[in-house]
Simulated assay, not measured.
Amino acid sequence: MKKAELATRRHRFEQRIIQERLQITSAVRDWNEATAPIDHAWQRVSHYKGPILLGSGLLVTLLSRNKGRVGKWFKRSVVVYTMARRAKKMIGH
């Protein structure tokens, strides 16, 4: 191959690389925009991690004193969760 052909090929490859880098940058920006609400929610949960752990530990301690109460609360939570999922499906979200 001649030097001119090699230079042309090299230029095409460099342009292709630049274009792919721009596409990757755009994809990363789109990804960050799409996951921003999740990141925001996670930061909020992380901010309240201490009180959440303290409250859940206190709740487990209180519920563990009466074994029958734990089963009842578990059943209720499963029913509420199932109803919420069905309602969400019916609404269409």
Rank of each mutant, 00 (worst) to 15 (best):
R86E: 15
I38N: 06
I24Y: 06
L58V: 10
V78G: 02
S77H: 14
A84E: 08
V78S: 04
V60A: 14
K88E: 10
T25N: 15
Q15M: 04
K88T: 12
T25A: 15
V78C: 09
R16N: 11
R10P: 05
R69E: 07
E5F: 07
A41C: 01
N32W: 09
A87T: 05
M83F: 12
N66L: 13
K2D: 14
I18G: 12
A4L: 13
G50P: 01
K72A: 07
T25Q: 15
S26F: 14
A87R: 02
Q19K: 12
L63G: 00
A84W: 11
L62F: 08
A4E: 15
M1G: 10
A7K: 02
K3T: 03
R44M: 07
Q23L: 12
V78Y: 06
V28Y: 11
H93K: 12
D30W: 14
R10G: 07
K88R: 15
D30V: 09
E20R: 10
H93T: 13
S77N: 11
M90Y: 04
I91R: 06
Q43F: 05
G68I: 00
W73K: 15
M1E: 07
A36Q: 08
M1L: 10
P51F: 00
T61P: 00
M90K: 04
V45F: 03
A27F: 04
H11S: 12
P51W: 01
P37S: 03
S64L: 14
K89E: 05
H11P: 00
H93M: 14
G50S: 09
M90G: 14
I18E: 13
R9T: 07
R16I: 09
I18N: 15
R29T: 07
K72R: 11
G92T: 03
L58P: 01
S56A: 15
I91G: 02
I91Q: 05
R65M: 10
Q43R: 02
G68M: 02
V80Q: 00
T61N: 06
Q23Y: 13
M1N: 07
R44G: 01
R44P: 00
S56E: 10
W42G: 13
